[in-house]
Structure formats: structure tokens, C-alpha cells
Write a protein that binds this DNA or RNA. Structure first.
Lengths: 123, 123
DNA sequence: CGGGATCCAGCTTGATACTG
DNA sequence: CAGTATCAAGCTGGATCCCG
């Protein structure tokens, strides 16, 4: 499959890039990976994810929930308890993301060297 | 490989997320995919990539070049001619990106439905 | 032709304070 | 405990003009 048709390329990228942008934001992948071990409560996530603010954790979880990657379960107790868990869709996303992660691990040194070479030849 | 260690997860994500953010920007994937068919000149790319501004094409190409995904060749003719081409590293990136693209194609309907359901239950 | 320089609007992220 | 509200800073992307 040569996929050389510019129209196809555009159509394909317009659907893929938004997802890449979504999971490329500052915290989404981290949240997904932490949740891959099992359900977690809000403050549990906040503790496990070093450096995230309350606001950004809320935002990230809302976005993931909206896309159907994470489910939110409220226990009407006092104090309130809310569990977040990866949906099957969320779990399935880990497969291609891990493939990309593997690519990065295999090539990050080359990328680093390329950057240093590029930055070095600024006269 | 259970990868349940929070430290490992953090370490892994801190290396993967920056790349995701890079190729998740507005134009990078599109440029890479168009270049996968072979080398192109600057204005050729600008014509092929609908809607990109001169500034963003320059920026995107510079970033990709810095990371070693794209090579830049200048022909000292008049008028000047500059060819951009995917490096072997750039070509290899297409594999995991296509895997992610496939995941999106398979699940975009479910994502769309989830979003509509989520937005619908805003009271 | 292939850019660089400048300016600006909008979005993303974070700090902080408050609430049921 | 699990958020919401508000504000501010920084970054991204686009429009426009200029240049060898």
C-alpha cells in the first residue's frame, strides 16, 4: 500500500493528528499508564503523578473520560470517593503507544546526537 | 512485562511524551507523510500541504531537520532550490505512527460516540 | 525561490483560593 | 476528598512585510 495520494494523506492525517495532539499533551499518557495498573482514586493519582496540579489532573481526566478512554465512578459516601479506571478502549490504546515508546527508546540517542549536531553548527 | 513501577512509568513517559508532543503538532505528521513519497522542494510542499503558512512550513521543517527526521539539500542555483527528504530515521518513524493511525481508524467512531454521550449529559 | 523578522490572538498550563 | 473559579504567564500558530 503505497498511499501516495495527497488527498488520502491529508484525510488520514486530519484524523490521526488530533489524537496525537491529545495524547501528546503534558499529562495524558502518564495518566493512562498509571491507570493501566488498575483503578485509582483522584488523590491517589495526584500523589502517583509527580508534579501535576489539581486543576490539570481534573482537566486531563475529563478529557480522557470524554473520549471514552477512562471511566469515572462516584461512591456517594462521606467523604466522597471517585474511582478512575481505564476502559477497554483505554487499554487498547496502550498497544500502539507502546510501539511508539519503543521507537523512541531505540532512536532517542540518534535524535539527541542530531540535535546537538544541528545546534552546534549555528554560526 | 507488567511495567507497574511508578518510577519506570514516569521515566518512560518523560521520554515518550516530548516526541508525541512534537509529532502531535499541527503539521509535522502531514509533512512526514507527504515526504514519504520522495524528496520535495519547499514551494512544492507548500502547494501539497493545504492551508500551511510559509512560516509554519519553515518551522516544521527546521524542527524535523533538527531531530534528524528530514534532510535539507541546497542547490546553489539561481533561483535557489532546496530539497527536503525523509532520512532513514524519518522513514522508520512512519511504522509506529501508522500503527497509531490504524488504531484511530478502528476506534474513531467509538470515540465520537463517547464524546456525544459525554456532551449530551451536561445538565 | 526560499526563506527571515515582527506582531498579535488564542490556547495551554500553573498558582492560588474557595466549596459541597 | 474531590473538585470549581479566577487570574496570569508562556507557548503556538497565523498574517504580514521584507530580503538575497
Amino acid at each position: 500500500m503505497p498511499d501516495l495520494d495527497p488527498v488520502d494523506i491529508h484525510a488520514g492525517c486530519k484524523t490521526v493528528t488530533p489524537l496525537l495532539a491529545r495524547i501528546g499533551d503534558k499529562w495524558s499518557i502518564l495518566v493512562v499508564m498509571v491507570l493501566s495498573a488498575g483503578p485509582r482514586r483522584f488523590n491517589e493519582l495526584k500523589r502517583l503523578i509527580d508534579g501535576i496540579s489539581q486543576r490539570m489532573l481534573t482537566h486531563t481526566l475529563r478529557s480522557l473520560e470524554r473520549d471514552g478512554l477512562v471511566s469515572r465512578t462516584v461512591f456517594p459516601t462521606i467523604p466522597p470517593r471517585v474511582d478512575y479506571e481505564l476502559t477497554p478502549l483505554g487499554h487498547s490504546l496502550r498497544v500502539p503507544v507502546k510501539a511508539l515508546g519503543l521507537w523512541v527508546m531505540e532512536n532517542k540517542d540518534e535524535i539527541t546526537r542530531s540535535r546537538e549536531a544541528f545546534d552546534g553548527r549555528e554560526d
